[in-house]
């Protein structure tokens, strides 16, 4: 409906696509997304146990045993995915990108001075004090998302394992560590859930330019005009280095698109609902 009213979009002939995320990236995001939602909907009931919706949700998900099982299975998968990612970064650092290229430069997830400059310029553009900045392969907010998950894995994963296997951890740690683990697990979970279901959803999918869904993480392919307009620095670098042809891709498959629309869309809806419940519970 919107496309017909935008002459510029109609004028673009057939999209050219470039590969942004490979199969493993997409699989990891999908697994992370599903297990994260699994942990969220089974973890929120105990955190908001004094609310009627939490009681109903727990009942719906199989009661105590059901919730506990889903939560632990999802957590285990998430930990495996995370460990797999860390191994992969190491392997690719050695075989493909170089250790230096992994730790610094446009293909690195490590925050760099350019990110601070980008963030500053971006905010200036928000308030109308400057032009819209262009970005490289990874923007500063994407790096924040990434490191938020990375940190969260250690914090939530670590505290979660403690609470899962208390008698194992108490072989070496004093029991009051479980008091701290309980606080940290719950608060960090609220941070993660609150962040992913509002900030990440907005930055990645719900903002007007992308609404309702940016499919790139599901299809792996970015349309040429988006690469040019939004990730101008990467595009120019690729043109200069002559790497553009190597990443030219076929249009997204229908399967990937459907997965993005339906599974990704479900995630967005569930996440937004979750936020409604949390905000309602925290405020009222």
């Amino acid at each position: 409906m919107a496309a017909t009213s935008i002459p510029a979009a109609a004028a673009v002939p057939k999209h050219k696509y470039y590969q942004r995320f490979d199969r493993i990236d997409r699989a990891m995001h999908a697994l992370l997304m599903i297990t994260f939602i699994g942990c969220t909907i089974t973890g929120l009931p105990p955190l908001f146990a004094d609310h009627a919706w939490a009681v109903s949700l727990a009942k719906l998900l199989g009661g105590f045993s059901g919730c506990a099982l889903i939560h632990r299975v999802c957590a285990a998968i998430m930990i495996v995915v995370f460990a797999g990612h860390v191994v992969r970064v190491f392997v690719e650092a050695v075989t493909k990108n170089g250790i230096l290229g992994t730790l610094w430069g446009p293909k690195s997830m490590v925050p760099q001075p350019q990110d601070i400059i980008d963030a500053y310029r971006h905010v200036r553009w928000f308030v109308g004090a400057g032009p819209r900045p262009t970005f490289d392969r990874y923007t500063y907010w994407e790096k924040f998302d990434y490191w938020a998950v990375f940190w969260g894995m250690f914090i939530i994963g670590g505290s979660g394992l403690m609470l899962w296997f208390p008698t194992v951890f108490s072989q070496v740690l004093p029991g009051w560590i479980f008091n701290i683990a309980t606080v940290v697990h719950g608060e960090e979970a609220l941070l993660a859930v609150g962040f992913i279901f509002t900030i990440h959803f907005f930055n990645g999918h719900l903002r007007p330019e992308k609404f309702p869904m940016d499919l790139v993480i599901f299809t792996g392919r970015i349309p040429e005009h988006e690469l040019k307009e939004e990730r101008t620095k990467e595009y120019e670098r690729l043109v200069k280095e002559g790497g553009l042809a190597a990443i030219e891709a076929t249009p997204p498959s229908n399967l990937a698109k459907y997965f993005g629309w339906y599974v990704g869309g479900t995630a967005v809806i569930l996440g937004t609902l979750t936020i409604v419940f949390i905000v309602y519970s925290v405020i009222l």
Binding site: H122, F126, F144, V184, F195, F202, E209
Partner: peptide
């Protein structure tokens, strides 16, 4: 943890609202 939550949500909350306005 309370400080961390308040900090992250304040910063990115404002960031998101401003971005939304501009978008």
């Amino acid at each position: 943890m309370q400080f961390l939550l308040a900090g992250v949500f304040s910063f990115f909350g404002l960031h998101t609202l401003l971005w939304l306005y501009r978008s």
